[in-house]
Simulated scan of single mutants.
Amino acid sequence: MSDLEISLEEGESGGRYFYREGDNLAEMTFSSAGHSLMIIDHTGVPDVFRGRGIGLALVSRAVEDARAAGKKIVPLCPFAAAQFRRHPEWADVLNR
């Protein structure tokens, strides 16, 4: 969906997707609930990145990875929840 280089750091209990440009960092953090559920709890995009679709790229990458791993997503973060409402094609990974 995007040509931005979104990186992933992951541990046993969760992790983050992030995009870095110079000293600026945008990130989306998540917690893991078992092996099949990802809970997106925060998305932070600095003002310098606003309007460039970086927040959407972070959530999109999580959706792609969840699909590939057979996981479901709980979008607790208001930004992520709004993106799920805007993208009904992501319904297959939305935990209802």
Rank of each mutant, 00 (worst) to 15 (best):
Ser2Gly: 12
Leu4Glu: 03
Glu5Phe: 05
Ile6Thr: 05
Ile6Trp: 00
Ile6Leu: 04
Ile6Cys: 02
Ser7Asn: 12
Ser7Tyr: 09
Ser7Ala: 15
Glu9Ser: 10
Glu9Cys: 05
Glu9Gln: 15
Glu10Asp: 11
Gly11Lys: 13
Gly11Thr: 10
Glu12Met: 15
Glu12Thr: 14
Ser13Gly: 03
Gly14Cys: 13
Gly14Ser: 11
Gly14Met: 11
Gly15Met: 11
Gly15Asp: 08
Arg16Asp: 09
Arg16Leu: 13
Arg16His: 12
Tyr17Thr: 07
Tyr17Asp: 03
Phe18Asn: 04
Tyr19Gln: 02
Glu21Lys: 10
Gly22Glu: 12
Asp23Asn: 12
Asp23Val: 12
Leu25Ser: 00
Glu27Tyr: 09
Glu27Ser: 01
Met28Glu: 12
Met28Gln: 09
Met28Ser: 10
Met28Thr: 06
Thr29His: 09
Thr29Pro: 01
Phe30Val: 13
Phe30Gly: 03
Phe30Gln: 04
Ser32Glu: 15
Ala33Leu: 10
Ala33Glu: 15
Ala33Asp: 10
Gly34Cys: 12
Ser36Ala: 14
Ser36Tyr: 11
Leu37Pro: 00
Leu37Ser: 01
Leu37Lys: 04
Met38Lys: 08
Ile39Glu: 07
His42Gln: 14
His42Gly: 08
His42Leu: 13
Thr43Cys: 11
Val45Arg: 01
Val45Leu: 09
Pro46Ala: 04
Pro46Leu: 06
Pro46Arg: 07
Pro46Gln: 03
Asp47Met: 09
Asp47Phe: 04
Val48Tyr: 01
Val48Gly: 02
Val48Glu: 12
Phe49Ser: 07
Phe49Tyr: 08
Arg50Tyr: 10
Arg50Ser: 14
Gly51Arg: 08
Arg52Met: 11
Arg52Phe: 04
Gly53Ile: 08
Gly53Trp: 06
Gly55Lys: 00
Leu56Asn: 04
Leu56His: 08
Leu56Gly: 07
Ala57Gln: 02
Ala57Val: 07
Ala57Asn: 02
Leu58Phe: 05
Leu58Val: 06
Val59Ala: 04
Ser60Phe: 05
Ser60Ile: 02
Ser60Pro: 01
Arg61Gly: 01
Arg61Ser: 11
Ala62Trp: 02
Val63Glu: 00
Val63Cys: 07
Val63Pro: 03
Ala66Gly: 07
Arg67Glu: 06
Ala68Pro: 15
Ala68Val: 10
Ala69Ser: 13
Ala69Trp: 04
Gly70Phe: 04
Lys72Cys: 03
Ile73Leu: 10
Ile73Ala: 03
Ile73Phe: 07
Val74Ile: 14
Val74Gly: 01
Pro75Glu: 05
Pro75Phe: 06
Pro75Ala: 07
Leu76Pro: 04
Leu76Phe: 13
Leu76Ile: 09
Cys77Gly: 11
Cys77Val: 10
Cys77Gln: 05
Pro78Lys: 14
Ala80Pro: 02
Ala80Lys: 00
Ala82Asp: 14
Ala82Trp: 05
Phe84Pro: 00
Phe84Asn: 02
Arg86Leu: 15
Pro88His: 11
Glu89Ala: 09
Glu89Pro: 05
Trp90Lys: 00
Trp90Ala: 01
Asp92Phe: 02
Asp92Leu: 02
Val93Tyr: 00
Leu94Phe: 14
Arg96Pro: 11
Arg96Leu: 14
Arg96Asp: 08
